[in-house]
């Protein structure tokens, strides 16, 4: 079979799938996916579609600082959405900022999912004391909001690491703090699915022919528990992006030399009173659009996979 034929076959399979029908039938889902894709692509290709690199001090000119958007008085076509206090083009800074926001978001969800899925599989499959121990920790952690847990982890790492090391590692610290604060939902869901799946015939059959526990968990149970994981990961992405933005806004996230969307809003807040509203409003709108789109996508995915699975929304 040629590669093209194989591709056609795969495309046909996608087209015939229930999920695809559900998807194209829902205007909201298509719209949300389009907005998400547009922002992700724009962030990905930021270096090629922006007039300047906002992280490179050589390209910035302080004389350009506080230029308003083009349609306002004093606007300049070089800076469509205006500039910030450093003379950074806001449009460029926003796309580069979205890059960092998305990077931290995806990385923390990946971390949270890895921790959560592993612990959930082990808890569900092993049962007994292991299960009890893992789920008690999960119970305690989930009774505190994720942002508080992330703040605390960040604060502790700040106490342990020397100051300059911390700035260097800020992104990793952030990913670790957000990821470690979000594993519980994954663990609970995967544990639930594991409890159901492990008593089914195919798992028993695998056990009878001597497949090891690890292989059973990874190759047999996990694929059947992935649906809800995808849903939680999508909603988790919205939460992670929001948490990153909040932490950066609070001044404990990424360093201001490489601002994310939250950092830009934090910087802009200082100039609210002197009338430079655009520095804070545009990054905020982009951030809200991104979170709203991902949230809607997650909502749709949840309903599509399982109408009964009603749960939390991103905060």
């Amino acid at each position: 079979m040629t590669a093209i034929a194989r591709f056609r076959q795969a495309a046909a399979r996608v087209r015939d799938h229930d999920l695809w029908h559900d998807f194209t039938a829902s205007k909201i889902a298509v719209g949300a996916a389009a907005v998400t894709a547009a922002i992700v692509l724009a962030a990905l290709f930021a270096p090629w579609i922006t007039p300047q690199n906002p992280f490179d001090p050589a390209e910035l000119d302080l004389l350009d600082a506080f230029t308003p958007p083009v349609w306002a008085e004093g606007g300049d076509w070089r800076f469509v959405l205006g500039t910030d206090d450093q003379g950074r083009d806001l449009y460029s800074a926003m796309l580069y900022g979205a890059r960092i926001s998305l990077l931290v978001g995806f990385a923390s969800v990946l971390l949270a999912a890895s921790i959560g899925v592993t612990l959930g599989l082990v808890a569900g499959y092993a049962g007994g004391a292991v299960d009890a121990a893992i789920m008690r920790v999960a119970d305690v952690q989930i009774s505190f909001p994720a942002i508080l847990v992330a703040l605390l982890i960040d604060g502790v790492l700040r106490g342990i690491l020397p100051r300059d090391r911390h700035d260097e590692l800020a992104l990793y610290v952030l990913v670790f703090a957000i990821g470690a604060s979000g594993w519980v939902q994954f663990a609970r869901t995967v544990r639930g699915s594991t409890l159901v799946e492990k008593n089914k015939e195919y798992v028993q059959a695998a056990r009878v022919i001597g497949v090891g526990s690890g292989a059973i968990m990874l190759r047999h149970i996990l694929p059947n528990a992935m649906g809800p994981v995808l849903v939680i990961a999508t909603i988790g992405l919205a939460v992670a992006i929001l948490t990153e933005a909040t932490l950066s806004f609070l001044g404990v996230g990424v360093p201001p030399t490489e601002p994310s969307l939250g950092t830009l809003i934090d910087i802009g807040q200082d100039f609210l009173f002197s009338g430079e509203w655009w520095i804070v409003v545009f990054p905020g709108v982009l951030l809200a659009a991104l979170i709203l789109a991902v949230n809607l996508l997650g909502d749709w995915l949840r309903d599509a996979f399982n109408p009964k699975l009603r749960g939390g929304v991103a905060r």
């Binding site: 933005a245 909040t246 807040q269 979170i291 991103a314």
Partner: peptide
């Protein structure tokens, strides 16, 4: 309510201040 959930808390506050 959907917008209220998606707007970050701090951004709502900033818009109000503005």
């Amino acid at each position: 309510s959907l917008v209220g959930i998606s707007l970050p808390t701090f951004f709502i506050g900033i818009l109000l201040i503005l």
